[in-house]
Design a binder for these strands. Structure first.
Lengths: 205, 205
DNA sequence: TCCATAAGTGCAACCGTTACAGTTTCGGCT
DNA sequence: AGCCGAAACTGTAACGGTTGCACTTATGGA
């Protein structure tokens, strides 16, 4: 019994097909580049019809991010199952450091991250992926805090936190970048007073 | 002399062509819906070839946001030409209230905003538009404050501020939403302590 | 055992987008 | 005034992502 109970042959085959498609896609993309591979090539390699391919993935770009749903689930879990007494922001910070940063800097995934970074269509898609999760995350945060589902502070927090992966990407020290931005979110930009120039000056300062 | 000097016939004709295309597009989109109109229809209506159409606009979606560049220019100007002594954040807040909020709630533009809101491809494109401006805005802010071009606090501020249009859209009081989010950016989420639940609780709180 | 239904197939078409090779139109320069 | 290179524009054809459709096959539950 390879899986959890009540998983019939049908579902296993479906998962296998999906995985075969994702694997074929990644392999071809890494070898030839995203633009150089057509969905028909991928379907061929995975031995399915293009119709089936699009039954499993909504677009060519989505083939690369097949763990999309898991990532959202982990994000939600990080907030929902945080240690009692821990604030939502701290839970998100911990999750960001543990999951995003280490994944992004894992040398085994370097070829993957390079592929995404070097392909505009994929970077674009990744960015939109995070924003799609923002709505979900926003309602989860609101729920956790007992606020209205569409509470503005919660929606804003969700959107801003999910900008962080994009913001940290490509920095020499992504970990430090994540920490810095979380500190900014917590304390606000008024704390940005230094000798050079204040971000939040008052009128006639 | 209809324009500024040194504007020859060539440039005027080019601008006219561009405008004709944008006008044709908007007219058809409003009448029949974005998906129901093909770029060939639009080109036909504007009496140009589809090749010409794509020489002026990079995509079908972009036909709707032909003021894109002006909007970015205004954004940059709002920061660069702010009253002396005014903080960057305050300048952005003022610009948001003056330009974005009033445009978004202008009844004359209702059909336009409704079109965008009801067409996923267009909402998506609008959101990406703002993010494209984030890079520019980030460097301008950094420049104004005499920081490194890629200063993290500046990049983050730019991205977050440009989330605000999306965040405020669809709220019953967009103006209040803008104000609230700017206050959050300035003071941070630690200020979110109320009787129900603190966003930034500490461990073992 | 039988059947409703989900998964997969193959084909054809739609449509956004681009390459290409050519023509017309300007604007600067002599 | 007249020439020339560049810019704007054209028409056609193709490419490739995506979808609709009618159909077959396999599966799990009744």
């Amino acid at each position: 019994m390879p899986d959890s109970p009540t998983v019939g042959r049908r579902e296993r085959k479906k998962a296998a097909t999906r995985q075969a498609i994702a694997d074929a896609a990644l392999e071809l993309f890494l070898k030839q580049g995203f633009e150089q591979v057509s969905v028909r090539d991928i379907a061929e390699r995975a031995d399915v019809s293009t119709t089936t391919l699009f039954a499993h993935f909504p677009s060519k770009e989505a083939l690369v991010f097949d763990r999309d749903e898991d990532i959202e689930a982990e994000l939600v879990a990080a907030v929902r199952e945080r240690p009692s007494g821990q604030g939502v922001v701290e839970a998100l910070r911990a999750h960001a450091l543990k999951s995003w940063v280490s994944i992004a800097s894992d040398p085994r995934l370097h070829r993957f991250t390079a592929l995404v970074d070097q392909t505009p269509a994929l970077s674009k898609h990744a960015e939109r992926m995070w924003m799609r999760h923002a709505a979900t995350l926003g309602t989860v945060i609101a729920e956790e805090l007992g606020r209205e589902t569409d509470d503005l502070a919660c929606s804003a927090l969700a959107r801003f936190v999910l900008q962080i992966p994009t913001l940290a990407k490509g920095r020499h020290d992504p970990r430090a970048a994540v920490e810095t931005v979380f500190d900014l979110l917590i304390h606000g930009w008024q704390s940005q007073h230094d000798s050079r120039g204040a971000i939040t000056g008052s009128y006639k300062g």
